[in-house]
Design a binder for these strands. Structure first.
Lengths: 143, 143
DNA sequence: GCAAACACCGGCAAAATGACGGAAAAAATG
DNA sequence: CATTTTTTCCGTCATTTTGCCGGTGTTTGC
């Protein structure tokens, strides 16, 4: 992973479908050298694949972030709530006003609302802020 | 968005870097027809772009969320800033006060701070809120 | 010093692409 | 219903890109 690999990955992050030749021009290497490097990056697992980025409206379902504030002495005491929701993808404790940031992907807005209400029933939870995801610009995880 | 478009997108989701010819074979259309359809899907915004999927380079480090507010008429105009940062893992447009929620994983707090300052240099960006991840409770993705 | 391994380059044939005109199908018009 | 218009598709040609190869220079280890 030297500066050339970094540059190549930078190019692919701009547009993963551009030609190897075009990348070679941008990074000032021969086409075959770039092709070799990309193949190696794929084989060693640095590059896990290539994704098409769709507008959020085309995806089935709705994603959202919940910011959660609770009154439990420890986060651990409230996390079981989110374990019980299969749509929860990530749940992390964060610095700032709120305590937790929970990312969910629900099949429908109706279900999303249901999840929100379910969370709300828990007395330990003081405050919820919902942020519906309206567009996805970068996703290096493949969700 | 008929069944052909769906099939094409399905192919691209498998591997966004495969050739148009290969997709044409899989969906039983001529190469030029598929190329036209893809171009149209790009122009109408159904396909927003193509991304390379990277493996988490190192488990060590610091993660954080940046809430971003900007003054660009369209989010797309400001997203290139985050494409330029290899540590960015997700970047999504959200409802609420802020416009974007960016998740990053940096090798060190020093580097995280560097990223924050880099983002701050961009005049289009009005406001940044940083939330350092202090604990991870649920992660259904294997980042 | 001398192989071996590595990364790079350039060249060639094969494959993929972009651009075009024209046929067929679908939609809109009278 | 007939006809125009639009859309979608196909095949072809010139160009670009790709995969594959041998050859060269540089680093690595014995």
């Amino acid at each position: 992973m030297d500066k050339f690999d970094t540059a190549i990955i930078h190019c692919l992050r701009q547009d993963a479908r551009q030609s190897v030749s075009s990348i070679a021009e941008q990074v000032n290497l021969s086409r075959s050298a770039v092709a070799e490097r990309i193949k190696k990056l794929e084989q060693t697992g640095v590059i896990r694949g290539y994704q098409v980025l769709l507008s959020e409206s085309q995806k089935e379902g709705v994603s959202a972030y919940f910011e959660i504030q609770h009154k439990c002495p420890r986060c651990a005491d409230v996390v079981h709530v989110f374990h019980a929701i299969p749509e929860v993808i990530t749940c992390r404790g964060i610095s700032g006003d709120m305590d937790l940031l929970v990312y969910v992907h629900a099949p429908s807005m109706r279900r999303l609302h249901e999840i929100r209400e379910y969370i709300d029933t828990h007395t330990d939870i003081i405050k919820i802020k919902t942020h519906v995801v309206m567009s996805e610009w970068i996703n290096n995880l493949g969700e």
